[in-house]
Design a protein around this nucleic acid. Structure first.
Lengths: 227, 227
DNA sequence: AGATGTATGTCGCCG
DNA sequence: CGGCGACGTACATCT
């Protein structure tokens, strides 16, 4: 990792064209050749960047300015003209052990697969990621009467999630094997359900279920968790 | 902007929970208080971060390690325990003049609104952002026979864009005022059209039009442009 | 402030 | 490698 603080102006040409007027900025050159241009504000997104794989070529212009030309395989180019270098240092970071995540949709799905009855009394799991022609249903369950129940899980329940579940239900209810005892019902499960999504779901006869992640996690075997 | 290269371990708790084991990483502290944790790979996205507005509190643990606690208004927290500092420098960057972008969908739309005939011979503009109940049609045009033509513009033409135009056409073709002389046709215009999108569009009777951005820009009045 | 649509989105999974 | 969906999506724009 090389870190350069420099007064520079930048031109990017790729999917779009962009220009950065001359100013003092931070340039990060990662080991894989990727380049990030950061200012002192904004968010984690750089002003400009080049994703790997790419190559950096360092040149000197006729008037003695340093110029970097970053080129990707897809012909995107980032041209950085450096007027003044304020800082330049390199650091060997090694390979990062990586990030351990917890609490995303996949994890919610695992927990609900273990405890389907928290969604509706008497509910039991048939299959996780139940495959259909238009995509996998998060959880396929059966209630105490033997009726099938399709569960769509979201961290945040919005309208598109209800649409997704509606499409699944439409398809599933054409399957004679699943509808022997009656139609397949739907449960829309999320940690937070937006009012519009709730209205749409209930209008379509889909049950909404709020998921308490911390409660579920507490029910889970703590010895399996790292933290 | 403060840049620290340090051996550190990190815990994040917010919308999700995440943990980073001890390793050498680059920490960027921006003037607005935001913090970015970068490794030597990946893309422009940091391993972990905290978006502004947030505050950084610097402490010393009982065993003499440096510890940063970054807190946001929404109670997200990022805890960074630093074992060893390899580099630490601060730089006054000032306010960045900002990025000038060129070639995004909006700009394409402006250019095509000025030159609709490049999409199809004899085409003339009726209205940009033609409002319907399900959203605005990018360009509403009329051809040399007086038939209405709805144009959907994308930088990259993919299936969802075709779906969008299909929905518009379905609705527009129910309007007796627009269909006096015949049905409303569709043109799917993009700088690049993916094969699947092209197949779907043509199957639905939608014409595909590749847009040559540089050509259009050349037709445009150059005195209006900055570069 | 909330809803909507775009993004040089990126990332990961699965075929 | 392409398609598809999730993301701590971020971000701008409009209501």
């Amino acid at each position: 990792m090389r870190i350069v603080v420099a007064t520079c102006q930048i031109d990017y040409a790729g999917r779009l064209t962009a220009h950065l007027p001359s100013a003092k900025r931070v340039l990060m050159l990662k080991a894989d050749g990727s380049v990030l241009v950061h200012s002192d504000g904004g968010s984690y997104k750089p002003l400009n960047w080049m994703s790997p794989p790419c190559t950096v070529q360092e040149d000197l212009t006729v008037d003695g300015q340093m110029e970097w030309t970053v080129t990707s395989k897809t012909d995107d180019t980032l041209r950085i003209v450096i007027t003044e270098v304020h800082h330049d240092s390199s650091h060997d970071l090694g390979i990062d052990p990586g990030l351990q995540k917890d609490g995303v949709e996949k994890h919610l799905q695992e927990l609900l697969a273990e405890h389907p009855a928290t969604l509706h009394d008497g509910l039991s799991l048939v299959r996780r990621e139940y495959t259909t022609a238009i995509g996998p249903v998060d959880l396929m369950c059966r209630d105490s009467d033997g009726l099938h129940v399709a569960v769509e899980i979201k961290r945040r329940g919005e309208i598109d999630g209800v649409e997704q579940l509606t499409r699944y239900l439409e398809l599933l209810n054409r399957d004679p094997l699943l509808t022997v005892k009656g139609p397949v019902r739907g449960i829309f499960a999320a940690q937070l359900i937006k009012p519009q999504a709730r209205v749409l779901a209930e209008d379509r006869g889909i049950t909404c279920a709020l998921v308490d992640y911390n409660l579920l996690r507490g029910m889970d075997d703590p010895s399996e968790r790292l933290f």
